[in-house]
């Protein structure tokens, strides 16, 4: 099985389409969407149409914190958090059927030795950021407690591509992958990867990010895909959403 792992699409239709096309070209046989399908971006309706079609075709789809927000936007924008500003707008755009689909999504999905989650397996609904070796170990540890046969935990949420692995010492080690290289991830070890963001990369590069896991060959490839971020930014401005969300796409931050 070649599993395409896409996360943090954030209603960026251009990036989503580019990654899906790339994954198909690379022979992906199973699609997994790890949450934050909407929020920030200008095309929640079109993105959700694609997501629901994919789900009907067997794709695994998880809920992220922005999906939760879009289903239940805060009534008062007390904090003026940027995510909350777009949540209300997104909520209004989506149809009932789309909202119900979003709200019913699971927080995790397990398939054999592979466990998928939006943020951290350690209390998935609290959306902990897996941003260092310690938080990665907490997520991986929680996964092992759930099911000792889990070897791979894949998540999004942090918008960065990072692989955590067991070195020769006691703790986990962090590895920054080179996009496009197939990294051996043998199943007698445990691995945790944050697979990056399709719709809003934040590592200084504009290319959309996703990952491809070849479960038979036990290799994980982090992928970056160039897409038309000018069009995605223009759509955000045209929708009347804050410029900030458009600007950051052209900087990858």
């Amino acid at each position: 099985m070649k599993l395409a792992l896409l996360s943090d699409i954030h209603a960026n239709l251009q990036a989503f389409d580019a990654c899906l096309a790339d994954a198909r070209a690379r022979g992906a046989t199973q699609i997994a969407l790890l949450g934050d399908l909407v929020g920030y971006g200008a095309d929640p309706v079109a993105v959700m149409q694609r997501v629901m079609t994919l789900a009907a075709g067997g794709a695994w789809v998880l809920k992220g914190n922005h999906d939760e927000l879009a289903c239940h936007p805060p009534e008062h924008l007390a904090s003026h958090a940027l995510g909350e500003i777009t949540a209300g707008w997104t909520h209004a755009q989506l149809g009932n059927e789309q909202r119900e689909f979003l709200d019913a999504l699971p927080l995790t999905h397990q398939d054999g030795s592979t466990l998928l989650v939006h943020a951290s397996v350690d209390s998935p609904a609290r959306w902990h950021y897996v941003k260092d070796e310690r938080s990665a170990a907490e997520s991986l540890g929680a996964a092992a407690q759930t099911d000792a046969s889990v070897r791979y935990v894949f998540g999004g949420h942090v918008h960065r591509q990072t692989l955590y692995f067991q070195g020769s010492g006691r703790g986990l080690m962090q590895f920054l992958p080179t996009p496009g290289t197939a990294i051996p991830v043998p199943s007698h070890r445990s691995w945790l990867a944050t697979i990056g963001s399709v719709g809003q990369p934040r590592d200084g590069r504009t290319e959309a990010g996703y990952a491809l896991f070849d479960r038979h060959a036990e290799r994980l490839t982090f992928v970056r895909v160039p897409y038309d971020f000018h069009a995605a930014a223009a759509a955000i401005r045209a929708a009347g959403l804050p410029d900030f969300f458009a600007d950051r796409l052209s900087k990858g931050e």
């Binding site: 692995f165 070195g167 020769s168 010492g169 703790g171 080690m173 992958p177």
Partner: peptide, 9 residues
């Protein structure tokens, strides 16, 4: 390009 399995903290 591969995680260094021999490395430790």
């Amino acid at each position: 390009h591969f995680p260094d399995l021999l490395a430790e903290e």
